[in-house]
Computed example of a mutant assay.
Amino acid sequence: MRVIAKFGGTSLGSGERVERAADSVADAVAAGHEIAVVASAMGDATDELLEEITFDAEEADRAEIVSMGERTAVRMLKAALAARGVNAEYVEPGHPDWPVVTDGHGDVDAEATRRRTEELAEELDATVPVITGFLAEGPEGGVTTLGRGGSDTTAVMLGRYADADEVVIVTDVEGVMTGDPHVVEGARNVGEITVDELRNLSFRGAEVLAPSALSFKDDDLAVRVIHYQHGDLLSGGTHVEGTFENMIDMREDPLACLTVAGRAIRNQSGIMSTLSTALAESDINVDAVASGMDSMTFYVDESIAERAENVLHREVVGDDELSSVTVTDNIAVVRVLGGEFPNRPGVLRRIVDPLADAAINVIDVVSSATSVAVFVDWADREETLDIVQRHFDS
């Protein structure tokens, strides 16, 4: 089996942990597996280096300085592997076998990186490459970086291009947990999680796997997250299932928009829970929710709008802070699902501006880490779908 093992900063945070990492790699090699290692900077080395740059450094100099964290880590891990009789070699920018290349815009040059990775993979039966994560070579050969979580991106990208069977992310939690184990008592491991679920968690602060890394996962590549104390690269942890594809979709049936108005609704704790619970107890599914300072809007199937209105009206009558509920019928929704919306400046404009140019009124926009839902009049649905497909996919 061919495995890309990525060791995070915590898992290499001390000499003892480097030894533990080397043991797990050596055991996998001894079992006959092909292993490539991606290493992050040890502990908080990158942050510490950044804190020491108190002067106005050029970007190229800054990249060279922060690269020293990863450069040190691969040397430590290579040496620990050599001490265990493993034929290992550290690989960093400038090395003849270095795989990750960026273009003039700082984005990964997919074709060049794929070609170099395939060449590197041909040697995995004889050597364990220990590769600096987070780093890349620019078009002129200088050091560039892949941004926060770049080591995760390195690992999953190399896993895909090297035709690996699995990428194993070694970190300081036993896979994905039901909550932050440092905060929540009784947090437990989740055996499986989808790419969509993990991406949303990662965009909202869960430090498990960088969202940018998941864009390189496909159905043929297994990805797993394990704890650095686990000791076995080939078992345990959380399996990340599926793949994420950009998609534009239009709901087939019309929606109704139910808006509950009230004084400073957003500042009242429990209002959303109260209204949502009332709808749920009446077996009314909510397609989307949008909130403002003085209102909260629920989108439901138009066929049950009247029943939903009665449910919400009872809540309005029973709460002095709520004033009314109104209903608008014949609403369509077009959804755009994409991998890294928060990291793509102007993405909403690419969807909404062409609609304004076509004189299509946008009733509402509801966005998340991985999707944008645009609500328009039912009569405008086909034109909206056509415009979004033409402009967003271009």
Score class of each variant (00 low, 15 high):
Arg2Phe: 02
Arg2Val: 03
Ile4Phe: 06
Leu12Met: 04
Ser14Gly: 08
Arg17Ala: 04
Val18Gly: 02
Ala22Tyr: 09
Asp23Ala: 09
Ser24Gly: 12
Ser24Tyr: 01
Ala26Lys: 05
Val29Met: 05
Val29Ser: 00
Ala31Val: 04
Ala36Cys: 13
Val37Ala: 09
Leu50Ile: 14
Glu51Ile: 02
Asp56Cys: 03
Ala57Lys: 07
Glu59Phe: 05
Val66Trp: 11
Arg71Leu: 14
Thr72Gly: 07
Thr72Lys: 13
Arg75Cys: 00
Met76Pro: 08
Ala80Cys: 11
Ala80Ser: 14
Ala82Ile: 15
Gly85Asp: 15
Val86Met: 04
Gly94Asp: 11
His95Cys: 08
His95Glu: 05
Asp97Trp: 01
Val101Asp: 06
Thr102His: 03
Asp103Thr: 09
Asp103Met: 05
Gly104His: 09
His105Leu: 13
Ala110His: 06
Ala110Pro: 01
Arg114Phe: 00
Arg116Pro: 02
Glu119Leu: 14
Glu119Gln: 11
Leu120Tyr: 07
Thr127Met: 06
Phe134Pro: 03
Ala136Glu: 06
Ala136Tyr: 13
Gly138Ala: 07
Gly138Thr: 14
Glu140Tyr: 00
Leu146Trp: 14
Arg148Glu: 08
Gly149Lys: 09
Gly149Thr: 08
Gly149Asn: 03
Gly150Ala: 06
Ala155Ile: 11
Met157Ile: 01
Met157Pro: 04
Val170Gly: 08
Val170Cys: 06
Thr171Phe: 07
Val173Lys: 05
Val176Phe: 07
His182Ile: 02
Val184His: 08
Val184Cys: 04
Ala187Gly: 05
Val190Ala: 03
Val190Tyr: 00
Val190Gln: 05
Thr194Tyr: 05
Val195Pro: 01
Leu198Ser: 06
Arg199Leu: 15
Arg199Phe: 02
Val208Ile: 15
Val208Phe: 01
Leu209Thr: 15
Pro211Asp: 13
Ser212Val: 10
Phe216Ala: 15
Lys217Trp: 02
Lys217Glu: 04
Asp218Phe: 01
Leu221Trp: 12
Ile226Val: 10
His230Tyr: 13
Asp232Glu: 14
Thr238Pro: 15
Thr238Glu: 03
Val240Ala: 02
Gly242Thr: 06
Phe244His: 11
Met250Leu: 12
Arg251Ser: 11
Glu252His: 05
Glu252Gln: 11
Glu252Pro: 13
Asp253Leu: 11
Arg263Tyr: 05
Ala264Tyr: 03
Ser273Tyr: 00
Asp283Ala: 06
Val289Arg: 01
Ala290Ile: 15
Gly292Pro: 08
Gly292Phe: 04
Ser295Thr: 13
Met296Leu: 14
Val300Gly: 09
Glu302His: 04
Glu302Thr: 12
Ile304Leu: 00
Glu306Arg: 07
Glu306Thr: 09
Ala308Met: 07
Asn310Trp: 08
His313Val: 07
Val316Arg: 12
Val316Thr: 09
Glu321Pro: 00
Leu322Cys: 01
Leu322Gln: 01
Ser323Thr: 14
Val325Lys: 02
Asp329Met: 04
Val333Asp: 05
Arg335Cys: 10
Arg335Ile: 07
Leu337Gln: 08
Pro342Met: 09
Arg344Ile: 03
Gly346Asn: 10
Gly346Trp: 00
Leu348Met: 14
Leu348Ile: 13
Arg350Glu: 06
Asp353Thr: 15
Pro354Met: 10
Leu355Phe: 08
Leu355Ala: 02
Ala359Trp: 01
Ala359Pro: 00
Ala369Cys: 05
Asp377Ala: 10
Asp380Leu: 13
Glu382Arg: 15
Ile387Arg: 13
Val388Leu: 10
